[in-house]
Lab assay of single mutants.
Amino acid sequence: MASQGTKRSYEQMETDGERQNATEIRASVGKMIDGIGRFYIQMCTELKLSDYEGRLIQNSLTIERMVLSAFDERRNKYLEEHPSAGKDPKKTGGPIYKRVDRKWMRELVLYDKEEIRRIWRQANNGDDATAGLTHMMIWHSNLNDTTYQRTRALVRTGMDPRMCSLMQGSTLPRRSGAAGAAVKGVGTMVMELIRMIKRGINDRNFWRGENGRKTRSAYERMCNILKGKFQTAAQRAMMDQVRESRNPGNAEIEDLIFLARSALILRGSVAHKSCLPACVYGPAVASGYDFEKEGYSLVGIDPFKLLQNSQVYSLIRPNENPAHKSQLVWMACNSAAFEDLRVLSFIRGTKVSPRGKLSTRGVQIASNENMDAMESSTLELRSRYWAIRTRSGGNTNQQRASAGQISVQPAFSVQRNLPFDKPTIMAAFTGNTEGRTSDMRAEIIRMMEGAKPEEMSFQGRGVFELSDERAANPIVPSFDMSNEGSYFFGDNAEEYDN
Rank of each mutant, 00 (worst) to 15 (best):
E454I: 13
L79T: 09
I365Q: 08
W139F: 10
R152W: 11
F230S: 04
T232A: 15
S9Q: 14
T350E: 09
N473M: 09
R391E: 14
R416C: 13
Y10C: 12
A471Q: 10
R236Y: 12
G249H: 10
L379E: 04
I197P: 08
R236G: 09
R65P: 01
S478K: 03
K87L: 03
L56M: 02
G158Q: 01
L226S: 06
K293Q: 01
I41F: 14
Q308D: 04
P173M: 07
P277F: 07
Q364F: 14
T396A: 15
A472L: 13
M191N: 00
R38L: 03
S438L: 15
I347M: 01
A218Q: 09
S377T: 02
Y78H: 14
M238H: 03
G228H: 05
V190Q: 07
P419K: 03
T134R: 07
E294F: 02
T215H: 12
Y313E: 06
P322A: 14
G393Y: 10
Y385T: 14
D16A: 14
N142E: 05
M440F: 00
L381Y: 06
S392K: 07
T146F: 12
R175H: 14
N125Q: 00
N202Y: 03
G126E: 06
S438H: 15
L381D: 12
G209S: 13
G169R: 06
I444H: 09
Q308P: 08
T151P: 01
D302W: 05
T146E: 14
P453I: 04
F338W: 00
T23N: 01
S383C: 15
M167A: 01
I444Q: 14
Q235K: 06
E107D: 01
N59M: 02
P248W: 08
A2N: 10
S438D: 13
R38V: 10
A233Q: 00
S245M: 11
E294W: 09
Q235P: 14
W330F: 03
V476I: 12
Q241V: 13
D491L: 06
E252D: 05
P89C: 00
I194Y: 14
A387G: 03
S482M: 10
E455P: 05
R400V: 02
Q327W: 12
E454W: 01
L193V: 03
G300Y: 11
S28D: 03
A373S: 07
S9V: 09
